[in-house]
Design a protein around this nucleic acid. Structure first.
Lengths: 144, 144
DNA sequence: CGGAATCCTCGATGATACTG
DNA sequence: CAGTATCATCGAGGATTCCG
């Protein structure tokens, strides 16, 4: 079990996903795909969520201020909003310790961990092809 | 070769990606991750690009107006912008036929196909857990 | 410390009009 | 048909302030 992608997904899942993405009629895109993309990209997989997701994945439990410090460039507002949304989506847990000063810990749920794993293939792709893309961009810009 | 994820990525790639995501020092997030996410989410993997990517993946070659019709809700401006960026990034090819009226065909490059495959794991995850997420949201909203 | 509330800006996107 | 150009909007997100 060296490959998290292999271990995480079964052929049936892949088949199901492919089925979901195939529209037989020559009409429009499957509305479920639209909903999928809207929900996933627009609400779950935004930049800050992905950053926090990977951070919690590698560090385990962290408190609010730690995440704020570690995710460079995030504003307090977006941090709160992102964490709240992750909690709402069941991706992370929020634990308030009744002490003064307050201490609030965040950690991924199994669902959060699985999302992180699901994105593994994308990170792999990105790392593998980022140079190629930059080259393609330079080439395109030169041609134009 | 029933599983595109298994066939596409090697254990070495996974290891490399994991290495990329692990920061030993207790400092900040690896800047390369930041760049990765910024580039990928902010420029490549936006909503419209993903929609067009999946469409071209399943339909093969399509002309400009066809894509515009099939991707519901996209404006002509965003369609042009999306396709141009995909071409620039080396994800798609643009073929102009010198006829009147003009005919321009778009198709994925191997790189574009590989990106589509990389997102497979995310689509699988999304389909598998979307109901769970909605339930979590209802539960959270009820608690609040 | 961990937020909530407020105000404000700017850039992404849509709408519209024009063209080879 | 496949764009380009221009203008208008609107909401995501930053900065700031206040609070338990």
């Amino acid at each position: 079990m060296t490959n998290p992608l292999e271990s995480r997904f079964h052929p049936d899942d892949i088949a199901a996903a492919h089925h979901l993405m195939e529209t037989e009629s020559p009409a429009e895109i499957d509305p479920r795909i639209e909903r999928l993309v809207d929900d996933l990209i627009g609400r779950i997989a935004d930049k800050w969520t992905l950053l926090v997701l990977e951070l919690l994945e590698e560090r385990g439990t962290l408190r609010f201020s730690e995440i704020g410090r570690l995710v460079e460039g995030i504003s307090q507002k977006m941090l709160t909003q992102t964490l709240r949304q992750m909690e709402r989506d069941g991706l992370a847990t929020r634990t308030v310790h009744p002490v003064v000063p307050p201490r609030v810990d965040y950690a991924l749920t199994p669902l959060g961990n699985s999302l992180s794993a699901a994105f593994c293939g994308v990170w792999v792709w990105a790392e593998k092809h980022l140079d190629t893309i930059e080259a393609a961009r330079r080439s395109f810009d030169a041609r134009t």
